[in-house]
Design a protein around this nucleic acid. Structure first.
Lengths: 139, 139
DNA sequence: ATTTTTGCTTTCAATTCGATAGCAAAAGTA
DNA sequence: TACTTTTGCTATCGAATTGAAAGCAAAAAT
């Protein structure tokens, strides 16, 4: 399951964990859209295949960026939630969004994500705070 | 050469361009270590294969994150330099570094990158300014 | 004139990706 | 209770990508 790290560089090590085409999109949906189930995460604009989603969730769980739980009245459905480590990816996600907005317009028509283009540090904090308060519903 | 974008999401679009295991490491070396030639970039801790480096440089050039030039006294050696678009990836690189430092210690021994863990906005600015002033040597 | 360096390209086996289908257990419905 | 549907996956398998190694032509160095 786990791969070797290519070096001790923190940038390289972060890439070894979330440096693929899907992991940060899964975390985007969890963090910004508060998606919590396999099904919710499946239905994104980019349409991740279930086999890939399954593999990524396992990987993210093994690195403790997310954890799995259930709600009492539903024995089937898994609830995936971000850990503190995962929530702290907010600045990376937001910088990706800002950079994409400013620099990709030439190559692709870029959607506007509401409220993600104002004061950077304020946004980073409030995204994390929002997720934290949502987490309280699950103790 | 160029792929389709999976959606109009700026996060997804940025991932479509630099969301692989190597591109951001190449940009790290150019931006932080001021590497400029194929050979210099080849000799990183992570040892990128020449076929991959060649392909990535072409891709990054096609998206105008880097450009290729030469110095007058050397007809062989290509000089790769970051464009403004490329330099503006500094915040992403730095957030990757900060996150890796804080969150990957449990799984990998993480090197200290000198001076990259102080005031965030100061660092982001000075990394870009440093690169800009180096660029002046090439007009 | 010869050797070395540089910036690649080619090859090819191995790995990963990803669309589709399948499936068991739980939940919902009649 | 029987049935249908939903959910959260796993299995399959061809296609695409990766990456180690070797090769190579042009330029530079000796």
């Amino acid at each position: 399951m786990k791969k070797e790290f290519r070096s001790g560089c923190p940038i390289s090590s972060t890439l070894d964990v979330v440096g693929d085409k899907w992991s940060l999109l899964i975390i985007r949906d969890m963090l910004l859209k508060h998606k919590k189930t396999f099904k919710e995460i499946s239905y994104s604009d980019e349409r991740i295949a279930p086999s890939i989603l399954s593999a990524r969730l396992k990987l993210l769980e093994s690195y403790k960026l997310i954890f799995k739980t259930k709600v009492p009245d539903n024995k089937k459905e898994n609830i995936y939630l971000l850990t503190e480590k995962g929530i702290r990816l907010a600045p990376i996600i937001i910088e990706f969004s800002l950079w994409g907005n400013s620099n990709m317009g030439e190559f692709n028509e870029i959607d506007d994500i509401e409220g993600l283009n104002s004061d950077k540090s304020y946004i980073m904090q409030s995204v994390q705070d929002n997720y934290d308060s949502m987490l309280l519903d699950f103790h």
